[in-house]
């Protein structure tokens, strides 16, 4: 059976992608997925050759045509505040429309249709380490949850066909739809947090979300030495909730410098963060390939 691990954080910028790209370099028999589809970064370090490109069609939205009789029924029933001016000059806010179909159903003139549009593209690429499934959401598009689901489905198809053992998923920040889509059905979650008050607040939320899925959850504290008191607080919280703090990574100015040069931090084995990330990987590996 192929195992899946998702790297999440709640708060953005805690180091998810740095850790994911390190894991991708160290792991074997694996496939990588970039599930942070509206700000994907995993492809930047990896040398890509895209072998397959597909369109994401999704997110039906209501479209009104000229047969509208300005009766106003649709606006009255829309629960998402997506329709305005329905008794004079109707406008549908595609950003707010959730494609529920109520307006289409109620329209006596048959003036409303649900239309699906291209929301982005998803790609299967070869890299020097493994295949990467990634995507690009059209700027301002909706449905990153659907796109996450699609990239994961493709990764699973390939994993089954090629007998892979592990899927590494780089998740999105936040706790909403794309994050939930990246957690559903995985075996492990690695929460990357930082010892800041914001980091802790968001960590507690994402921990709750992961808890709903009953996934084996590990915690990694990045930049643990910028605030020892907060690091202790996280460790205490984890201990009382029975979550394993599987690694702590030191604050290390080499991380952004190495990244700027488009290199991997784990290749700089003298740097403190590299040592910590490598150790983190080996501690996790025991579970990943069990």
């Amino acid at each position: 059976m192929v195992k899946q691990i998702t790297i999440i954080s709640g708060k953005g910028g805690t180091g998810k992608t740095t850790i994911a790209s390190s894991f991708i370099k160290m792991a074997h028999d694996h496939i990588a997925v970039d599930a942070d589809v509206d700000a994907a970064n995993l492809h930047i370090l990896l040398n890509l050759t895209t072998i397959k490109k597909e369109d994401l069609i999704g997110g039906a939205v209501a479209v009104v045509n000229q047969t509208c009789i300005n009766c106003g029924k649709c606006e009255e029933l829309c629960r998402f505040d997506a329709i305005s001016g329905s008794t004079s000059d109707i406008k549908i806010d595609t950003l707010k429309c959730e494609g529920c179909g109520v307006c289409q159903y109620i329209c006596p003139a048959g003036a409303i249709e649900l239309k699906k549009d291209k929301q982005g593209e998803f790609y299967t690429s070869d890299t020097q380490f493994c295949k990467l499934i990634h995507a690009r959401l059209n700027p301002a598009a909706e449905n990153s949850g659907l796109l996450v689901t699609m990239v994961r489905s493709i990764a699973e198809d390939i994993a089954y066909a090629e007998n892979k053992k592990l899927i590494i998923i780089d998740g999105a920040p936040g706790i909403g739809c794309p994050v939930i889509a990246s957690l559903n059905g995985v075996d492990f979650a690695l929460i990357v947090t930082e010892p800041t008050l914001s980091g802790i607040s968001d960590f507690k939320k994402i921990y709750k979300v992961a808890g709903f899925f009953n996934i084996k959850t590990f915690v990694c504290i990045n930049k643990h030495d910028i605030n020892d008191k907060n690091t202790e607080a996280i460790e205490k919280f984890c201990a009382s909730n029975n979550i394993q703090v599987i690694g702590k990574i030191a604050y290390d100015e080499n991380v952004p410098k190495v990244l700027a040069a488009k290199n991997y931090i784990i290749d700089y084995t003298d740097s403190p963060a590299a040592k910590d990330i490598i150790q983190l990987y080996f501690r996790l590996e025991k579970f990943l390939y069990e």
Binding site: D38, A39, L137, A140, E142, S144, G174
Partner: peptide
Amino acid sequence: PPGNSCSM
């Protein structure tokens, strides 16, 4: 919020 989709 971070990102470039709907909620942003």
